[in-house]
């Protein structure tokens, strides 16, 4: 399981476990499963999807993966 948090300037929109994360990176979608290497990438505009079917609209910011912890820090986010 991945520990995922979705953070916007105004609030923490999600914090919890998910089996996978699919995020709109600056150059296309990026998928993250457990055991992913430590990574930081900037995000573009699009939909962030978690393994359990939740999704968020995100715009800008970055995604950080570190030891099965995924932090999505975005300038604009809203739940879909």
């Amino acid at each position: 399981m991945l520990r995922v948090s979705v953070i916007s300037p105004e609030a923490v929109l999600f914090e919890g476990d998910a089996s996978s994360v699919v995020a709109p990176a600056f150059d296309g979608e990026v998928g993250i499963l457990t055991g992913h290497a430590a990574m930081v990438t900037t995000l573009g505009t699009g939909t962030l999807r978690l393994g359990d079917g939740q999704s968020f609209k995100v715009e800008g910011g970055f995604l950080q993966v570190d030891e099965n912890t995924v932090r999505v820090v975005t300038e604009k986010a809203s739940k879909v």
Binding site: E10, F26, V40, T41, T42, D66
Partner: peptide, 27 residues
């Protein structure tokens, strides 16, 4: 300084994050 895979690059990430940092300071 951990070994992160950086996309596109450290410089590019900083270029987008610094303005966000300033905006956040104001927010």
């Amino acid at each position: 300084q951990k070994d992160y895979l950086l996309f596109p690059s450290a410089a590019d990430i900083l270029t987008t994050l610094l303005p966000a940092y300033v905006r956040n300071a104001l927010y």
